[in-house]
């Protein structure tokens, strides 16, 4: 059974907030005693998803949850925006596809960096991306 140890919510309303998101995720990953590679991966994934929420979703929030599942500890991050949503999910989850000016590596790259990845979106409904990294 998964127990939630701690919860916090961070705003993503500016470029500076993307930096704060990275710092908050680093703090939590350190507290959970993640190794340096896992730490770097979850911070990088958070940076990509926070930027997506800001650039495409016109801002949103990141919910942070530290988890305990038996002896296992984990960090779950939920990025929520009220933007235009994603029309074609298959395309959005294709490497190199972008509707903005980016490389199109954010979403697919973030997915590769974590253990669990979930995305919910519909046109006009905003987008919610949840990622979990287990130690």
């Amino acid at each position: 059974m998964i127990t939630i140890l701690n919860t916090d919510i961070k705003p993503i309303q500016s470029q500076a907030d993307i930096v704060y998101v990275r710092q908050a995720v680093r703090d939590w990953a350190l507290k959970l005693q993640f190794g340096i590679v896992d730490q770097t991966k979850i911070i990088t994934a958070a940076s990509e998803l926070a930027r997506n929420a800001f650039e495409y979703g016109k801002g949103g929030t990141m919910k942070m949850e530290s988890l305990q599942d038996g002896f296992k500890k984990g960090l779950r991050l939920t990025f929520d925006d009220k933007g235009p949503g994603i029309e074609n999910m298959d395309l959005a989850l294709t490497d190199g596809y972008t509707t903005g000016g980016g490389l199109g590596m954010g979403l697919t790259g973030a997915r590769r960096l974590v253990n669990e990845f979930d995305i919910k979106s519909a046109p006009g409904q905003g987008t919610t991306v949840t990622i979990t990294k287990w130690k």
Partner: peptide, 14 residues
């Protein structure tokens, strides 16, 4: 470049 950054970057797809 730190090793953990290199590992992450390649996995990210860059």
């Amino acid at each position: 470049m730190q090793p953990a950054v290199a590992i992450t970057l390649v996995e990210l797809g860059l």
